[in-house]
Simulated scan of single mutants.
Amino acid sequence: MDTWENEARAALLQRRSSLRGLLRETLVEAEGLRNKRAADPVDESVEARAEAVLERLSEREQRELKDIDDALVRIAQGHFGHCARCGGAIGRHRLRAIPEARHCMACSEELRR
């Protein structure tokens, strides 16, 4: 495994650990909101909005966790750094910025359109 792959792996593992901690905190906070339901309709609407935000955050974070886990698998299998679409190199600068990236810049831009 190259040094840059080791760097990417370390960054991915650190981000995964942070996200898992944040998800745990989010779930605990959402559960606390559910347990503190108030009879006041205003409080209930604020609580409902808070829970909706927490759920959206956890969905986004869960997607990011999946992307990180997929990248760790690619490292283990020796496919890290290759675009899933065209097979070309993703580029070290991009991987340093976004270690879970699946696509090179060109394919990423095409997919966004």
Rank of each mutant, 00 (worst) to 15 (best):
Q77S: 14
D2H: 07
D43K: 05
A10Q: 10
D40A: 02
R16F: 01
I68C: 02
E29S: 13
D69W: 13
H103F: 11
Q14P: 06
E110P: 01
Q77L: 15
A39H: 15
V42L: 14
E5F: 05
A71R: 00
A8Y: 03
A52M: 09
L13E: 11
D40C: 03
A38V: 14
H82N: 08
E44P: 15
R16N: 02
I90S: 03
E51P: 00
A52R: 12
E110D: 12
A39I: 08
C107T: 01
L57Q: 09
R112H: 13
R16C: 00
I75S: 06
E51Y: 06
E61W: 09
C104Y: 04
F80R: 11
R94S: 07
V46S: 10
H93M: 02
C107N: 06
R74Q: 08
L23K: 12
E29I: 08
R49L: 00
R49T: 02
E47Y: 07
L72Q: 00
R20A: 04
L72R: 00
A48S: 14
E5S: 13
S108D: 08
R85H: 01
A89P: 15
L33Q: 05
R49S: 01
E55K: 04
R63Y: 12
E100Y: 08
R63C: 07
N35D: 10
R37V: 03
V42K: 14
I90K: 03
R49V: 00
V46T: 07
R9E: 07
E55W: 07
E25D: 15
R74F: 11
H103P: 00
R96N: 11
S108N: 12
K36N: 15
N6R: 10
D67K: 12
A84E: 13
D70W: 09
V28C: 01
R15L: 15
E25G: 12
A52D: 09
A39F: 10
H93W: 07
T26G: 11
P99M: 03
R24F: 02
R102Q: 05
G87V: 09
I90W: 03
M1T: 06
I98Y: 06
E47G: 09
L19I: 09
L13H: 12
E47H: 10
C104F: 02
K66A: 10
G21H: 14
A10C: 04
P41N: 00
E109V: 15
R113D: 11
S45N: 11
S18R: 14
I98M: 09
S58E: 12
A11D: 11
T3Y: 02
A10R: 10
R56K: 08
H79V: 00
L95R: 10
R63I: 12
R20Y: 05
V28K: 01
